[in-house]
């Protein structure tokens, strides 16, 4: 069905020749992401737990145009890297009643290497889903004596950028069994629920129609391995749950809140759909 749709559109392109110049190809681009001489894994066999729903997992990088892909391949051109630097300043900044910075306990940010690849994950003691943002705020409130940063605070996205960057190139390996199992199931249910007046699920666009265009937007698989993402249209970093808010809103639905049980479960589930793809550090999308 999808193939036929694409062919029909391509036929129309051939007939018209103009006006369609921006969408010459509907397929994800066959390209390799190399940053500083290191190849980043942007394609992987679909995770077994998806039962074939995704034959191949693909980073959103493959769905962006040549200029945007090139921007991510060079850290000097990647606008998201500025936020990594800002995150490092925050890492070293003392805050709160305990007179501590992140560095006081963890030393360098490289101590966080690997964390981004296995989160969100379920905390064994509390049974809560923890992503990077919730770990940072937990540390601030329980160890630093500082206030939690707000859901949309730039400090939080800066820290997410810094900590994600420490895991660049590591393969996503989010656990879905054990304590994570009920959250996985809940996230999966949300993923396939058609919300809002447009009655669209995550799957409607990102499983059934990736590779197709919705107006000028080339639909990707909605993978989260690249997050935080520098979106050129927003000129700022976006977190996975920040993007969820935008997506659900655009179905003319009442969104869930960042940090809600629903979005925590959904983030875990969506991340697990990209197991095998590499953490990109800070990605660039349009």
């Amino acid at each position: 069905m999808k193939q036929r749709t694409i062919k029909t559109a391509l036929a129309a392109t051939a007939v018209l020749g103009l006006a369609f110049a921006g969408m010459a190809s509907a397929e994800p681009v066959d390209d390799t992401l190399v940053i500083d001489g290191v190849e980043i894994v942007t394609k992987a066999a679909g995770a077994a737990h998806l039962d074939g729903a995704l034959p191949e997992a693909m980073s959103g990088w493959h769905f962006r145009d040549t200029e945007t892909r090139a921007m991510q391949a060079d850290d000097f051109d990647n606008p998201g890297m500025i936020y990594v630097d800002r995150g490092l300043d925050l890492w070293n900044a003392v805050d709160g009643t305990e007179g501590k910075s992140c560095a006081s306990c963890h030393e360098g940010p490289e101590a966080m290497a690997g964390l981004r690849a296995v989160t969100p994950r379920v905390d064994e003691k509390t049974g809560k889903v923890m992503n990077i943002e919730s770990y940072v705020n937990d540390c601030r409130t329980t160890r630093m004596g500082a206030e939690a940063w707000g859901d949309k605070a730039v400090e939080l996205t800066d820290m997410l950028a810094l900590i994600s960057f420490q895991s660049r190139g590591e393969l996503m390996n989010v656990a879905i069994d054990g304590a994570a199992a009920p959250f996985y199931e809940k996230g999966k249910e949300i993923y396939y629920t058609r919300f809002g007046q447009l009655e669209l699920s995550c799957a409607s666009c990102h499983e059934d129609n990736y590779g197709n265009y919705i107006r000028s937007d080339h639909l990707s698989q909605g993978q989260t391995n690249g997050f935080p993402v520098y979106r050129l249209k927003d000129a700022k970093l976006t977190t996975p749950q920040g993007r969820f808010v935008g997506c659900v809103r655009d179905t003319r639905a009442e969104t869930f809140k960042i940090g809600s049980d629903e979005f925590n479960a959904l983030e875990l589930y969506v991340a697990s759909r990209g197991n095998g793809l590499a953490v990109e550090g800070v990605s660039v999308r349009n």
């Binding site: 036929r4 749709t5 694409i6 029909t8 559109a9 036929a11 129309a12 007939v15 018209l16 006006a19 369609f20 921006g22 969408m23 509907a26 666009c205 129609n209 197709n212 265009y213 919705i214 107006r215 000028s216 639909l219």
Partner: peptide, 29 residues
């Protein structure tokens, strides 16, 4: 976009002057 936005998903030769037709739905020719 703020009305039907049919073109977001559907292309058609007759509507070719409307930019960026989508490919989610079948072409309407």
């Amino acid at each position: 976009a703020g009305l039907g936005n049919c073109v977001a998903c559907h292309a058609a030769v007759i509507a070719a002057d409307i930019p960026f037709p989508g490919t989610v739905g079948p072409a309407l020719d």
